[in-house]
């Protein structure tokens, strides 16, 4: 297996996803297959190849530092599940 059960559990936890034991089992097999497939790339000699950051050779796409009007707050909050005092409301966070 290219990936262990506990690694799958860890990744699921980071992504805030909950799975049953069976699902974890199934994903471990599936993900391992995917990784094995991608691992084929390791057969290539990349010794003198620069890591690719972006596949298209385009650089320096910028905008000028200009302020434009922001969006109307009512519109911004329109799809918010919970809102209060012009803010998005989320479950209580305690630091």
């Amino acid at each position: 297996m290219a990936i262990s059960r506990s690694e799958v559990e860890h990744v699921a936890k980071l992504a805030r996803l909950k799975f049953s034991q069976e699902e974890i089992e199934e994903f471990t097999v599936q993900l391992s297959k995917i990784i094995d497939y991608v691992n084929k790339l390791n057969e290539l000699d990349t010794e003198n190849v620069e890591p690719t950051a972006h596949i298209v050779p385009i650089y320096n796409v910028f905008r000028e530092d200009e302020v434009k009007p922001s969006m109307d707050r009512d519109k911004i909050l329109m799809n918010a599940l919970y809102k209060e005092n012009g803010c998005f409301k989320v479950p209580k966070i305690i630091e």
Binding site: V61, F62, R63, D65, M71, C87
Partner: peptide
């Protein structure tokens, strides 16, 4: 006022794309 300096880009709404400010 809260949430008056926001737009779909800085809210990360689907379909929006960031463009880097040259001055930064």
């Amino acid at each position: 006022e809260p949430n008056t300096h926001v737009c779909p880009v800085c809210l990360g709404l689907p379909g929006t794309l960031p463009v880097l400010n040259k001055k930064v």
